[in-house]
């Protein structure tokens, strides 16, 4: 059962392997250049397991100790996970003890795969999601550890490889768009993000975007539910 789930899960994580190794290496090198031992990126990737926050945490470690501010920044950067949890309530709650790890490791990529993928017949969905999450974390931790070990020794021409993450989310968005009976919410997401990006700038538009999405999904609840029930 486990082997079957692993074999089904692995192919979906290949793009994430490319993306996480690239970003993980970059993060490890960044930490190395800032003067941290490889133990830091390794441990931080293992316990925090959240890319953008880890980059910010590197700067925090170099500044004065400010616990309250640290917690607040962490909550703000990671707030989008609240939406993931609301969407995964039923799906993760039926997985026994694996639920705890699935919640702990619910990064953008694991959520996207686990929410979207229709698991083939005969494959256990719980184990499938478990392996997707585990493999993704493994890629991230090994990538940042190697980056931290090698530091700036490695030079490689991988310029542009970061686009693999964009392509992943575009394909997942497209799949979901084709699957849904209504496209209001898809448009709400894109439009809110674009407008908020233009107004608030690239470093602080996620929270306003979330507020806009929440507002639109509340105001247009009736039409969304109505359109979703058609056919």
């Amino acid at each position: 059962m486990k082997l079957k789930a692993f074999k089904a899960a692995f192919p979906y994580t290949i793009p994430i392997f490319a993306g996480f190794w690239f970003l993980g290496l970059t993060y490890g090198i960044y930490m190395n250049v800032l003067g941290f031992s490889f133990v830091y990126p390794m441990m931080m990737s293992l316990v925090i397991f959240g890319g953008s926050l880890e980059f910010v945490a590197a700067q925090m470690l170099l500044s004065a100790f400010a616990p309250l501010q640290t917690l607040l920044v962490a909550l703000l950067i990671q707030a989008r996970h609240l939406f993931y949890g609301i969407s995964m309530l039923d799906i993760y709650n039926n997985t026994g003890w694996k639920k705890y790890y699935l919640i702990y490791g619910m990064c953008d990529e694991s959520f996207s795969i686990n929410y979207t993928v229709q698991v083939p017949d005969g494959v256990d969905k719980g184990w499938f999601m478990f392996f997707v999450t585990l493999l993704n974390q493994l890629y991230w931790v090994t990538g940042s550890t190697i980056g931290g070990l090698l530091g700036s020794l490695i030079t490689f021409n991988t310029q542009g490889l970061e686009f693999v993450m964009t392509a992943l989310f575009v394909v997942i968005f497209l799949e979901q768009w084709l699957k849904e009976k209504q496209n209001y919410t898809a448009l709400f997401g894109v439009l809110s993000a674009v407008v908020c990006r233009l107004i608030f700038g690239s470093s602080s538009f996620i929270i306003p975007t979330m507020v806009c999405i929440l507002f639109l999904c509340t105001v247009f609840r009736k039409p969304i539910e109505h359109a979703g029930e058609k056919e």
Binding site: I86, D108, F173, T185, V194, R197
Partner: peptide, 20 residues
């Protein structure tokens, strides 16, 4: 309702986030 409505909106947001 939110659990059903949010994911596709979030995927749209993540695409924009990647291109920010």
């Amino acid at each position: 309702h939110l659990g059903k409505a949010l994911p596709v909106a979030v995927f749209g947001m993540l695409v924009v986030y990647c291109l920010k």
